[in-house]
Design a protein around this nucleic acid. Structure first.
Lengths: 216, 216
DNA sequence: GATAAACCGCGAACGCTGTTTGCAGTTTAC
DNA sequence: GTAAACTGCAAACAGCGTTCGCGGTTTATC
């Protein structure tokens, strides 16, 4: 099995000391990539497209990054910085955590492509660690095992992404031409309009955190 | 804007009446693709690889499917059929729903690539509809709006995927070489080992469903 | 001050991807 | 019997991430 010895992008210096002054920078490249992703989605973030936005060729980017995955990691960390400044934790840890979850919700709404990137195992950067650290700080008064807090935070972030996903998923495609007789309960449920509740987000997370952070 | 008039793969007949008997079939192709995905992941499911597993060329597959997305939709519906036979609903709707969630958990564990496919807007097939319909049947005794049930079911499926994701995500990469002083709470949390609770799955879903299905 | 190592931008190329197209041969409907 | 519809197949196209080699530039070292 092959193991890449190349250090993570977070540890690699941007450039050495020798050589001509580079035309671009990691920050400029990542900013261009984020702009592209915000406008046209993750698929539009090809090395060639990002390079073209900077007026150069795809190969040039590899002077600053070692792969597209590195670029995605940097993009993630860049927008996660938008979660700052972290609000000072109040007396109620759950309420403070809900406020942080609300900030995440806004972040994912501004940058929908983030959702596709969260499934990756690799790539947690300084800003991601800082946010996680702040969440742990908020949870300090809660008396339960660290592992439970980890689980609760992971689940919270996950539920936030689920909400954004459900917001973005279009209404059901009307099932045109499909025989619905095998699905009687589904058909029956299309009676009442059912206005979605406004407090669904907070309600869900409260139920979740109550179950996961129960003191023992 | 361009709108594809091509009907969904579920409505298109497998073949017409004229012409020679085809060498392959949708089912055979989808089965080969699922085998490939189970063994080597979704990225290994290229049209060429699937075709090679069937001893033919990539172009041939387009006699049976109109795109790779169609293939992914068919793969999803095929494995969702593994959720059958649905257990007869018991007296407690929440308990019955938890049992169904457990079946989903097993399904996602057997076919991890399913998780990557659930984010897509398109592609709910007959088996997916049948499972959804059965969930609604289980929830019949619960007295709340249909929209709330929809939300609860979507959230349940989402939480199941979050669990599988967290199971598959490797332990933290040990942070080799990274300066951890900016993250004091994170470092402090690495004291107690914290054995993960076994009942986490059921506990989480109960808290969630209690919050979402509260009768009003 | 000269030399060598390291770095820059650039363009061409490699192997991979999903998809389209044209061709020859086969089966069925009218 | 003829025409339409279908089949398998191979080649080709455009796009992707990535690598490589080139000439030119900057810096560290002797």
């Amino acid at each position: 099995m092959h193991v890449t010895d190349a250090p993570s992008i977070w540890l690699r210096p941007e450039r050495g000391s020798r050589g001509p002054q580079p035309t671009h920078s990691r920050d400029e490249i990542v900013a261009a990539a984020v702009t592209l992703a915000d406008a046209e989605g993750l698929n539009a973030v090809s090395m060639r497209a990002v390079a073209a936005a900077l007026g150069t060729g795809a190969g040039t980017l590899y002077r600053y990054l070692s792969s597209r995955d590195d670029l995605l990691d940097l993009m993630t960390d860049r927008v996660v910085a938008e979660l700052r400044p972290y609000p000072e934790p109040g007396p109620d840890p759950i309420a403070s955590l809900l406020e942080l979850a609300g900030r995440q919700l806004g972040l994912y709404r501004r940058h929908p492509w983030l959702i596709e990137l969260l499934g990756r195992a690799t790539g947690i950067g300084p800003e991601g660690l800082a946010f996680f650290d702040h969440c742990l700080r908020v949870l300090t008064p809660v008396r339960c095992a660290s592992a439970a807090k980890f689980e609760a935070l992971a689940m919270t972030t996950g539920v936030v992404t689920l909400f954004v996903r459900s917001e973005r998923s279009a209404p059901p495609p009307a099932f045109t031409g499909l025989d619905l007789t095998p699905y009687p309960h589904l058909v029956a449920s299309f009676g009442q309009p059912g206005v979605p509740r406004a407090d669904l987000f907070e309600r869900t997370l409260r139920g979740l955190l109550h179950a996961l952070l129960e003191e023992e």
